[in-house]
């Protein structure tokens, strides 16, 4: 009897993109958001890779990816993500800018999870990013868990192992670079992943082709998310910063640290 693993994760602008908040007709947004190349949020990516790994090792498991983002961009990101691991997509059409209300996003995700046909809550493991590259509040996954009535929640997870007898052993990050070890009897539970220990899987077109047969219909079925008006932002602006770039390779750690300290001291 495998797990039913639901991974919550959406897209963020590809790293190194210049992000500029602007005041749009529906509130704050990222300038040219629809033109920016996007990737699956790196935190959620780790959660997906961990889910796929767990599903591979525990027979009978299934993996769903629940994504809330602009449908057109989701379709684009899926071309890459679908090659990484087998999953079934549940798409929700809506903004992924990070300016939306965390509780509203969590509500939309929880509603979508509850609507998954054949989902067995006694086997349910909800995965997601501990934080997000577009939102650092660490709030969404906690609220998703609360909405689903999941009382066993773990945040900053780096490892999840299945012990003999089916108990789950969890390593959570705590201060001082250490882990807190917990053991729970089994599902249901929620895990906000940190980086985990798995590398990014290679692209595998065979997995991609198998995934895509269901992904395209899922995208076509995607319903608009009812996110509401959300919070009111009094002002959005770019942090003042000056780029001083040098590309230097193989610099000693001490030299890097000294340079940063010198820079901070001005």
């Amino acid at each position: 009897m495998g797990y039913h693993i639901v991974v919550c994760g959406s897209l963020v602008p590809d790293p190194l993109q210049t992000l500029e908040p602007v005041q749009g007709p529906q509130g704050p947004a990222l300038k040219n958001e629809m033109m920016l190349p996007a990737v699956l949020d790196p935190w959620a990516s780790h959660a997906l890779y961990e889910a796929a790994h767990l599903a591979r090792t525990v027979a009978g498991s299934r993996v769903w990816l629940v994504s809330l983002g602009p449908k057109a961009k989701l379709q684009q990101v899926m071309m890459t993500v679908a090659q990484k691991a087998p999953f079934e997509l549940v798409a929700i059409d809506g903004s992924a800018s990070g300016f939306t209300d965390a509780a509203a996003v969590a509500g939309a995700l929880a509603d979508a999870i509850e609507a998954i046909p054949d989902l067995d809550r006694t086997r349910l493991l909800v995965f997601g990013g501990w934080e997000s590259a577009s939102r650092g509040a660490s709030a969404v996954m906690q609220i998703v868990g609360e909405r689903l009535g999941l009382v066993d929640q773990f945040q900053g997870v780096d490892a999840l192992t299945v012990e003999d007898g089916g108990a789950l052993r969890v390593l959570e990050r705590i201060e001082g670079g250490r882990h807190q070890v917990s053991t729970l009897a089994g599902p249901p539970a929620l895990f906000g992943w940190a980086t985990g220990h798995l590398g990014e899987p290679p692209n595998n077109p065979q997995i991609g082709m198998a995934n895509m047969r269901a992904i395209m219909p899922a995208l076509q079925r995607a319903k608009p998310a009812a996110l509401g008006a959300g919070p009111t932002f009094a002002r959005v602006s770019l942090p003042k910063q000056t780029r001083q770039t040098r590309v230097v390779k193989d610099l000693a750690v001490d030299a890097i640290a000294k340079e940063i300290v010198d820079w901070i001291k001005g």
Binding site: M79, T80, G208, M212
Partner: peptide, 8 residues
């Protein structure tokens, strides 16, 4: 009808 795979 067709599939496109980037990063490949």
């Amino acid at each position: 009808a067709v599939q496109v795979w980037p990063a490949s």
